[in-house]
Simulated scan of single mutants.
Amino acid sequence: MKLGKRISELRERKQITQGELAQIIGVTRAALSHYENDRRQPDYDTLMKIAKFFSVSVEYVIEGNENSTQIQG
């Protein structure tokens, strides 16, 4: 699975919109859409914000390491 699909799936599990997540991580909704559709790669700071918000590792967001899929309470 590609990075964009993982971001999209994490967002959908939390039942939030692209606009809501974009605001939380400090990017535009258009930028988030580009990430989710693998047209652009987020920078490391943005990856860290995504991982922190979803309580997963940056490694999971980037590579899909199954050991990091547990979303912590």
Rank of each mutant, 00 (worst) to 15 (best):
M1S: 14
M1Y: 08
K2D: 14
R6V: 10
R6P: 01
E9Y: 10
E9R: 13
L10W: 00
L10V: 08
L10C: 06
L10E: 03
L10K: 00
L10A: 03
R11C: 00
R11M: 01
R11L: 00
E12N: 13
R13F: 07
R13V: 11
K14I: 02
K14V: 11
K14G: 04
K14A: 14
Q15H: 13
Q15T: 15
T17R: 05
T17L: 08
Q18G: 09
Q18A: 09
Q18F: 02
G19N: 15
G19F: 09
E20N: 12
E20H: 11
E20F: 06
A22W: 00
Q23G: 05
Q23D: 09
I24K: 14
I24T: 08
I24D: 02
I24C: 00
V27P: 01
V27G: 05
T28G: 12
R29V: 01
R29P: 02
A31R: 03
A31G: 04
S33M: 07
S33P: 00
H34D: 13
H34V: 07
H34F: 14
Y35R: 05
E36Y: 10
N37P: 02
N37Q: 11
N37A: 09
D38R: 11
R39V: 11
R39K: 15
R40G: 01
R40N: 08
R40P: 02
Q41M: 10
P42A: 10
D43K: 12
D43L: 08
Y44E: 05
Y44H: 10
T46S: 12
T46Y: 06
L47P: 03
L47S: 04
M48Q: 12
K49Y: 05
I50E: 00
I50V: 15
K52I: 00
K52T: 01
K52C: 05
K52N: 14
F53G: 04
F53N: 02
F53V: 05
F53E: 00
F54T: 09
F54E: 07
S55W: 03
S55T: 15
S57H: 06
S57F: 03
S57N: 07
E59K: 10
E59C: 04
E59Y: 02
E59M: 06
Y60W: 07
Y60S: 04
Y60M: 07
Y60K: 05
I62Q: 03
I62F: 02
I62E: 03
E63Y: 13
E63F: 12
E63I: 05
G64R: 07
G64S: 09
G64F: 01
G64W: 03
G64Q: 09
N65M: 07
N65R: 15
N65G: 07
N67S: 14
S68F: 03
S68M: 11
T69W: 04
T69K: 15
T69V: 09
Q70A: 12
I71V: 12
I71R: 08
I71F: 02
I71W: 06
I71Y: 04
Q72W: 05
